[in-house]
Design a protein around this nucleic acid. Structure first.
Lengths: 250, 250
DNA sequence: CCGGACCCTGAATCAGAAT
DNA sequence: AATTCTGATTCAGGGTCCG
């Protein structure tokens, strides 16, 4: 019986780190505490929050993410935070951080939020509750690389819910489905998204992009690679460092 | 003729049409009235109900509802701006017909219900409210054949919500995404699904299949083609005739 | 008449295997 | 491989039966 290695994150803790690069502004801390202090306004929020989906019981959800989502004992991932909420508090929490993002967006700004099938209804509720106009559900097709599902249909997709702050202003035309295989060696986060997936999403957005759940920083890498400005927030110190290193290397 | 119209709303009226073929049992009438009188039990419900997106304009949804929603502590689904009554009654109606289907399913029976992105949250609510275990969201990729969306992401997918009556009993392994182009010439119904899409869905199911919103009968054609038994219900007389003719031709 | 040991039951939880 | 299933185990609650 190990002592819980999960550290509690105090939203108001002031031991936040802050790294400023040429086109990037990276914060370590809880996004609920950090977002209100960000400077200026953004054109888009593109993010992949913790899903809080694993497990049916409180105990399962509270388990370390490393254990929860690990299938083969091959790789050890550091835990990530914020993955232990039930549906009600997930909704409330989602509406909170989305509401803070809303305040920091320019009119017409986009929001793009990833979700798995289970949290999809909650995510669409939250995006509307926080003031956005919900405009659609996009699909990430993992190109079949998912567990087979006996007697049913394989969960080979994840979803992104998207919307805007008022009328749309962009003039890009993007598909609503992206078929991208996750190459295991490329993964820097247990549940990280492939760069090939994030690049077209970021390309659909304006110039200044915010990711309040930066993780290993793939959204940032995509944004900087397209010459855009990026602000990222990550609560977990380990992944914050990974993101800083990756974005600095670009 | 006039008399028939007058009696149309009586569930037990015997001027509903009923066509019995070798492997097919086709009813013309409102599924809420017809389902309770169907004989025996089914292995699966595969259907494409009317999406009822009427009355929900983007302008309505654009209004902010955050305060209202966050103040209602115990609401399961949001009472969002504008024509929320439409959403609420769509939910109620969906839960009604799904509940009737539930009664007619064998243990472990599957339910597969199509939805567009807008009704997706309501459909997942309804499927659970009517007793089913919600197990996933599958995707129909229309292979790009959809209107471009300026400043956003093209709605090139529709979805199917699937679940089961208790533990799964089947042993098929199906993908969770189907990429099928709708060939305009093939369409027999304004929103009909391609046969190439319905065939693998039907193949994932057991032997006896029910479609309470038969439309032009594509689900039935797929089922009969696989040697399964099919029962279909369609309220609109025109489409009922189309379905009878198509299934008879098989 | 009361209290406590005892059993029973169903729900919640947990470990392990399979996909 | 951003899980699900099974079966074992724990645990709280309620009832019974004596002391």
């Amino acid at each position: 019986m190990q002592q819980a290695q999960k550290q509690q994150h105090n939203p108001l803790s002031n031991n936040q780190k802050h790294v400023r690069l040429a086109k990037a502004d990276l914060h370590q801390g809880d996004c609920l505490a950090v977002i209100p202090h960000l400077d200026g306004f953004f054109d888009a929020v593109v993010t992949d929050p913790p899903y809080s989906s694993g497990g049916q019981s409180k105990g399962n959800r509270a388990a370390s993410t490393g254990a929860k989502y690990l299938n083969t004992g091959s790789v050890q991932w550091p835990d990530f935070a914020g993955d232990s909420k039930d549906q009600r508090s997930y909704l409330h929490w989602s509406a909170l951080w989305m509401g803070l993002c809303y305040e920091k967006l320019n009119p017409g700004g986009l929001i793009v939020v990833f979700s798995d099938w289970r949290q999809l209804p909650v995510t669409t509720d939250a995006i509307q509750a926080s003031g956005f106009t919900w405009r659609g559900v996009g699909v990430w097709d993992k190109a079949g690389s998912a567990r087979p599902y006996k007697g049913g249909f394989k969960a080979q997709t994840e979803f992104f819910v998207w919307g805007s702050k008022g009328p749309l202003v962009g003039d890009s035309y993007s598909p609503g489905l992206f078929r991208v295989q996750q190459k295991p060696g490329e993964k820097r986060h247990q549940v990280g998204k492939p760069l090939d997936l994030m690049e077209p999403l970021v390309a659909a957005c304006g110039n200044r992009i915010l990711d309040p759940f930066m993780g290993s920083g793939t959204t940032g890498v995509a944004a900087i690679g397209q010459g855009k400005e990026f602000s990222g927030i990550e609560v977990c110190d380990h992944y914050f460092q990974v993101a800083v290193d990756r974005i600095r290397e670009r």
